[in-house]
């Protein structure tokens, strides 16, 4: 049995209480929600917080609400809740695509969206999903809330704009008409971290051309979105040709590293392949018509 180093434990009853506890116990305290990243690291003694502040009782953080042109998702919302929400699936199919391949049901029953974003693992799926959907993250401190974009929130692997004394409280997704989104991951086995994954959002104009597009990559060494790849789509009709060009540019934007999951050229190939695949799905979901015949690969 792997056992963590000694630590103390306290349950927060509200956001305000959690913030007080963070303040009181200082820099060596950590918030625990689903615990699927933190607890294994503690058992391996890679993480050694002195205090665990458990926010699982903070019911105000567990909600999925439509609010005008925004979908508001509480930070404590479980993966399983997102996956079982018809509203989420209808507005943002990319979320369901991603949630279906996040770990396994046991993890999804417990893990949370706030935990995923806060952990900011480079192979973590929801960061890419939030990048692609241009989500905004609500970070709450004793001084109040900050609502920030993903580009500001996500600073790199394992690093976010959420300070030690703050709490991620909500994620807000803008609802876009005539949009379609998709996510696809390659993993060696269900529950393994991604070898690579890609996500895309397409918003169509009335004439069927692409009005807005974002492409994100997971575990491929790209922070934020593949801007150049998305740019070639703007104003174009969705087609295999432009998807191929976007795939090529996404691959060029990636900078994967070799590991047990594969060599660099394979991962770069996946950036291309998966980008094209998610663009096809996103276009179909956005209601794009038959794609032009393809000559590209």
């Amino acid at each position: 049995m792997q056992v963590p180093a000694p630590f103390d434990y306290v349950r927060a009853t509200s956001v305000a209480d959690a913030l007080d506890l963070l303040e009181r116990h200082g820099p060596e305290s950590r918030v625990v929600a689903g615990g699927h990243s933190l607890l294994p690291m503690m058992k391996l003694r890679l993480a050694r917080p002195e205090w665990l502040i458990d926010i699982n009782d903070v019911a105000e953080l567990d909600h999925v609400t439509r609010d005008g042109d925004w979908l508001r998702v509480g930070a404590l919302t479980r993966h399983a809740t997102l996956l079982s929400s018809a509203l989420v699936g209808e507005l943002f199919p990319i979320v369901h695509d991603a949630e279906r391949v996040i770990a396994d049901p046991v993890v999804r029953n417990r893990g949370t969206i706030g935990g995923s974003l806060g952990q900011a693992d480079p192979a973590e799926d929801l960061t890419t999903v939030c990048d692609v959907l241009r989500a905004r993250v609500v970070v709450t401190g004793r001084a109040g809330e900050r609502v920030i974009g993903m580009d500001e929130f996500h600073r790199g692997p394992y690093e976010t704009a959420c300070e030690q004394s703050e709490l991620i409280t909500e994620v807000r997704f803008p609802i876009r008409p005539r949009s379609g989104s998709a996510y696809e991951k390659v993993e060696r086995r269900v529950g393994d971290w991604a070898v690579a994954a890609a996500g895309a959002l397409l918003v169509l104009a009335d004439d069927g051309t692409v009005a807005d597009a974002t492409i994100g990559l997971t575990a491929l060494g790209l922070e934020g979105c593949a801007v150049d790849a998305a740019a070639v789509l703007l104003g174009a009709h969705p087609s295999e040709e432009v998807f191929a060009e976007a795939g090529r540019l996404a691959a060029a934007a990636s900078s994967p590293v070799e590991d047990q999951r594969g060599p660099v050229d394979y991962k770069r190939h996946l950036a291309d392949e998966l980008t094209r695949r998610v663009l096809r799905s996103a276009a179909t979901r956005a209601g794009a018509g038959v794609l032009t015949a393809t000559t590209g690969g």
């Binding site: 390659v186 060696r188 070898v195 999951r261 594969g262 060599p263 394979y266 991962k267 190939h269």
Partner: peptide, 8 residues
Amino acid sequence: CTPARVWE
């Protein structure tokens, strides 16, 4: 026969 090795 992992995905990467099959692709290789």
